[in-house]
């Protein structure tokens, strides 16, 4: 799988959420806030205001604070998978949040967004999210399908 291409496709998909912060580039996503806002839309009862308030929301965070946010986002998703979806992800290479926060790495960002995608297509509102994906251009749908299949093969 071409992960740089996957990252671009997943950013396009992320753009379909009601995200209020910049979310067009890998650098935009490097503080975890856009991803956290998407998660809040996917599972508002779980990724609630109390959870969101644990994140630092400032315009120019240093890389350590970005990584701190990303760790909370990643852990939140993993806990959501276990506690709500009943899914234990094994054998999937987890995103290196240091590389996302410090270097804006697109490969690692693709892994992070892949986990968000996994939450979206299995949450209680999955019908809404899957139908939104089906409205996207075919090449993006193809990348998303591959990403979901890879993720499901690791459960």
């Amino acid at each position: 799988m071409d992960r740089a291409q996957l990252c671009l496709s997943l950013i396009k998909w992320l753009n379909t959420f009601k995200v209020t912060v910049p979310n067009q580039t890998v650098e935009d996503l490097s503080d975890g806030i856009a991803v956290a806002q998407a998660l809040r839309e996917i599972a508002p009862d779980y990724f609630n205001d109390a959870w969101f308030k644990k994140l630092k929301v400032e315009e120019s965070l240093n890389w350590r604070l970005k990584v701190s946010n990303l760790k909370k986002v990643l852990n939140g998703m993993l806990e959501y998978n276990i506690e709500v979806l009943g899914i234990q992800i094994q054998g999937f290479q987890m995103p290196d949040v240091n590389l996302i926060g410090e270097r804006h790495d697109s490969v690692e960002t693709s892994r992070l967004l892949q986990l968000v995608l996994g939450c979206a297509v299995r949450c209680s509102e999955k019908q809404f999210h899957i139908q939104n994906i089906m409205k996207m251009e075919e090449s993006v749908q193809q990348m998303i399908m591959n990403a979901i299949q890879e993720l499901m093969s690791k459960e």
Partner: peptide, 30 residues
């Protein structure tokens, strides 16, 4: 919702995949 896409085409394959995902029962909480 893509259900009418011709089978055997990439469009049909994508529709099949996402429709099967829609019908899949998932989650500890249902």
């Amino acid at each position: 919702d893509g259900k009418g896409a011709p089978p055997g085409t990439s469009e049909g394959m994508l529709a099949n995949f996402f429709n099967s995902l829609l019908s899949k029962k998932t989650g500890a909480a249902g």
